[in-house]
């Protein structure tokens, strides 16, 4: 860029484009921390089984832990209805054309939900492995769900998401005998992108591995 003419002003902003989202996310995070709430941001491609994982979790341990759920989808309240049927407080956010949740949407949802102290807030992001990775929602942990009907190389095809996640839940593990899926290859690819990533193998429909998931949630809670 050339130096501006005298009638012009060069303003060196050096401002992060996501500054507003990041500041709102920190406010959400502060709210969660003050109330000892564990907030999980669940991300995945469409159809990996985020909603099924949530339903099973609410059914199994919803009696022991207080859950509140924020459902993000482009259209419909079908997922919110499934979650409500599983007995949890839920708010549906429809993003319309939007492909991801932003901190401001979660901020509004929290005001509606008023989650209690010591509870667990599950934020189910829009099914999309690209866009949600950039938007901090103020979550305590980010959980990426992948099912074994997808490719083992997803972590290196969508590195941003796997890099920003804390836990990778490998779902539909009950289908392993019927598929040519190399679990070790998936882990290797994911660890190349994020060497600190943790893994859990589950089947949300059959129930395999769910106990380990519940333990992970318990240990991640601020009160643990």
């Amino acid at each position: 860029m050339t130096a501006p003419e005298p009638s012009k002003t060069l303003v060196e902003l050096e401002r992060d484009i996501l500054d507003k989202n990041n500041r709102l996310a920190e406010r959400n995070r502060g709210f969660f921390e003050a109330r000892d709430i564990l907030a999980l941001n669940l991300v995945s491609s469409p159809g990996s089984g985020k909603t099924a994982l949530l339903e099973r979790t609410l059914t199994d341990i919803g009696g022991k832990i207080n859950f509140a759920v924020i459902e993000g989808d482009q259209q419909t309240s079908r997922d919110a209805e499934r979650i409500a049927a599983a007995g949890s407080a839920v708010v549906q956010i429809n993003t319309g054309k939007g492909c991801h949740l932003e901190a401001s949407m979660v901020h509004d949802a929290i005001r509606q939900l008023q989650p209690e102290g010591n509870s667990v807030v599950m934020i189910e992001n829009v099914g999309n492995l690209v866009c949600p990775s950039l938007f901090d929602l103020g979550e305590s942990k980010r959980v990426v769900v992948i099912s074994i009907t997808e490719g083992e190389d997803k972590p290196i095809k969508y590195p941003d998401m796997f890099r920003s996640a804390d836990l990778c839940v490998i779902n539909k593990i009950d289908l392993l005998p019927y598929l040519k899926f190399d679990l070790n290859a998936l882990r290797d690819y994911a660890l190349q992108v994020n060497p600190k990533l943790e893994f859990l193998e589950v089947s949300a429909t059959v129930g395999t591995g769910m106990e380990a998931w519940y333990q992970w949630i318990q240990q991640a809670r601020p009160s643990a």
């Binding site: 860029m1 501006p4 005298p6 009638s7 012009k8 002003t9 060069l10 303003v11 060196e12 902003l13 050096e14 401002r15 992060d16 484009i17 996501l18 950039l134």
Partner: peptide, 28 residues
């Protein structure tokens, strides 16, 4: 992922567009 800078032109002060020393009408 940043907005590094903007170059602004003062539209409210036509004098500032005159040749010669710039008026101190804007500030960073």
């Amino acid at each position: 992922l940043q907005i590094a800078s903007l170059i602004l032109e003062d539209t409210a002060n036509p004098e500032s567009k005159m040749p010669g020393p710039a008026l101190a009408s804007t500030h960073s």
